[in-house]
């Protein structure tokens, strides 16, 4: 049997704050296999972002076991095994789009003659060909977020972690980017962890939907999607889609009442 890419067993995380301890994650068990598209959905404070940050070794669990590619999250971070996309594009205003995508490559000491080719390749992947010489402020919010995805893809990490990457964008742009993200996922076969608070987004994108609830942050339901891998936007009107969305909503409500 293949080992899961991300394996969480009884992960606990308690933050010590001035107002006393906050139980951010409680007994989180989850396996993510290679090529999965996993969405984390739940109300704010349910620990979905915190769990993603644990995978990225930006937070350290206070209990349980968490491995990424069989390594500890920190070793995986040092091995540069994931690309991380934040809610804001966070492009450097003093670098061009190509310059921004070069940033991780420069830090990771990629050979100089290889960098230009990689930048071109990922610009094409996110449909920003020809925008490399532009500065971030010359691009729309959606294009900036695409550039930040390109930046996360540039160094060919197997895992892509995305923390509400389209949360700040309007519905129309979000739809388009969702569609593109699916195509990109199909082409690159990456393992994707995706935090969102939108039910349609989670159902549309994922092969596995993790429903979480707050106080303490925990998993209330894990739904394996029965939707086909090929997903046109119209699939959101299908009975199958509505059924899964319903189950997500039920899971969210159950967590809320508890």
């Amino acid at each position: 049997m293949k080992k899961p890419v991300i394996d969480a067993r009884g992960v606990d995380l308690t933050f010590q704050t001035n107002d006393g301890p906050v139980h951010a994650l409680k007994d989180v068990n989850l396996e993510i296999n290679k090529g999965d598209f996993v969405s984390f959905i739940g109300p704010s404070g349910c620990g979905k972002t915190t769990f993603l940050r644990c995978i990225a070794a930006l937070e350290t669990p206070t209990g349980g076991a968490l491995t990424v590619n069989g390594l500890t999250p920190d070793e995986a971070r040092k091995a540069r095994s994931y690309g991380y996309v934040f809610q804001a594009a966070g492009l450097y205003p003093w670098r061009t789009i190509a310059g921004n995508i070069r940033l991780p490559l420069e830090i990771m000491d990629f050979p100089k003659d290889e960098i230009a080719g990689r930048v071109e390749k990922v610009l094409e992947l996110v449909d920003l060909k020809g925008f490399g010489k532009k500065f971030p402020w010359q691009l729309s919010g959606g294009m900036q977020q695409r550039a930040s995805i390109a930046r996360a893809l540039a160094f060919d990490a197997e895992i892509l972690l995305m923390d509400e990457p389209f949360g700040a964008l309007d519905e129309i742009v979000r739809d388009k980017l969702n569609e593109e993200l699916l195509k990109l996922w199909a082409r690159t076969n990456k393992t994707i962890g995706f935090v969102t608070h939108s039910i349609p987004e989670a159902v549309y994108l994922s092969t596995k939907i993790v429903v979480m609830s707050p106080r303490p942050g925990r998993i209330t339901d894990v739904i394996e999607s029965t939707l086909p891998k090929e997903r046109p936007l119209e699939i959101r009107d299908s009975e199958e889609f509505i059924k899964i969305a319903h189950r997500v909503r039920e899971g969210l409500r159950a967590g809320h009442d508890a």
Partner: peptide, 8 residues
């Protein structure tokens, strides 16, 4: 955080 994810 972004720099940290690059292990910079």
């Amino acid at each position: 955080d972004l720099m940290k994810t690059y292990n910079a």
